[in-house]
């Protein structure tokens, strides 16, 4: 679940570099440039882009829609539709039967490919879209980002879109990276040398 409703799950990231210029215009321009494009009436299979945090249909990104005091908030929206091969093949067999009835022969490989592609586009338009929202909070002072969600696939989608949008390297916060941030230089050397120990060995 995300950050706005229900029981939140988060993944934490640390920005490795601070942006040179974090003005409203900078953020707005980046978000707009990589804003979500609606594919409701097209045959596109997926669309990924930013939407406003409180309104997943809006892509204006006026600062009041993403600036919330000490942090910024926006959402990655992924719309996707899937056409199962089983369905495509079912409709292809109907078209193939028509072709055989008209010509008295089976379609060759080239014709088969053309018919299948044409059918795929036609059927994709009729598939309902599934929408997934990945909420993002950017704590600018702490250079920390929260992604509303966990799992490798969600993280990868977010990391790719983030990198493409802002060009800022963000690293997942894991126990070792958190630990290295918390300890002194001497302790960090010790931490990097530490190996897994048993409860039963000194």
């Amino acid at each position: 679940m995300g950050l706005l409703k229900g029981t939140p799950t988060i993944s934490r990231y640390r920005l490795l570099d601070a942006p040179l210029e974090l003005t409203d215009a900078f953020v707005q321009e980046k978000l707009q440039r990589h804003g979500f494009v609606d594919i409701e009436t097209t045959a596109e299979e997926t669309s990924l882009g930013w939407v406003e945090f409180l309104d997943p249909r809006a892509t204006n990104f006026d600062p009041h829609a993403w600036r919330f005091g000490g942090f910024l908030a926006f959402t990655a929206r992924i719309d996707s539709r899937r056409l199962p091969n089983k369905i495509l093949n079912r409709y292809y067999l109907i078209e193939e039967a028509k072709f055989v009835a008209e010509t008295g022969r089976k379609p060759n490989a080239q014709k088969k490919k053309e018919v299948k592609e044409s059918l795929r586009l036609e059927l994709l338009r009729r598939c309902l879209l599934d929408t997934d929202l990945l909420e993002v909070l950017w704590f600018t002072k702490e250079r920390e980002i929260w992604l509303g969600g966990a799992g490798e696939k969600k993280r990868q989608v977010f990391e790719d879109l983030w990198e493409k949008t802002f060009g800022l390297a963000a690293r997942l916060l894991a126990p070792i990276t958190m630990g290295l941030e918390m300890v002194t230089k001497e302790q960090a050397t010790e931490l990097l040398k530490t190996i897994s120990t048993s409860l039963w060995e000194d």
Binding site: L16, A174, P175, T177, G179, L180, V183, A188, L192, T194
Partner: peptide
């Protein structure tokens, strides 16, 4: 913030190596 991160060490390698933490 990450001045203690070792140079030339891949994050995924380090993450897996220190997963026990």
């Amino acid at each position: 913030m990450s001045q203690n991160y070792p140079e030339n060490v891949d994050f995924l390698d380090l993450w897996l190596e220190k997963m026990f933490l």
